[in-house]
Amino acid sequence: MGEVLIFIGCPQIPVQSALVLHIADFLQDAGHHPIVAANPSAKQLVKTSDPKGHYVKDYIDLDKTIGDLADGTVHYPLIISLIHNNAGLTYTATIAAVSPDSLLLSVLFGEHAYDIAEEVEYPTEKVVAPVTHNTRPLLTKLDEVLEWAVLKI
């Protein structure tokens, strides 16, 4: 089974780190190896919640990930991007452009999730809920899409 990239942005919204661990747990159960691309503060929050690396063992830098995808030195069959602001949308659109053969899931959350989701113009499967502290409204749809996605890769 292959590596799956979980791409995360600014850690300002509390649900983000919890979603990372939830997705990583799902991927491991499905036999895949989750790798988290994050900036230093977002990485630190996830590592603090998972100090022994039960869920996530490998982290990489956001900009290095974009560069490696653009150079073709790495490829991930499935990329799951967590988005809650315009910068997250911009990063994810970049991923769609530099890695067109990947199956791309966009998980949109935070206060402006619906507004940001309307701006998505790249090919992706979207999971959207305007949650900040409570993951529950997002999880049912997220799990459904993850089950479908791991069957596609």
Partner: peptide, 15 residues
């Protein structure tokens, strides 16, 4: 193109 490097960093952006 996205990923075009300036100052060793790839450009982030929507084409």
């Amino acid at each position: 193109p996205p990923g075009f490097k300036l100052l060793d960093k790839p450009l982030i952006g929507i084409p």
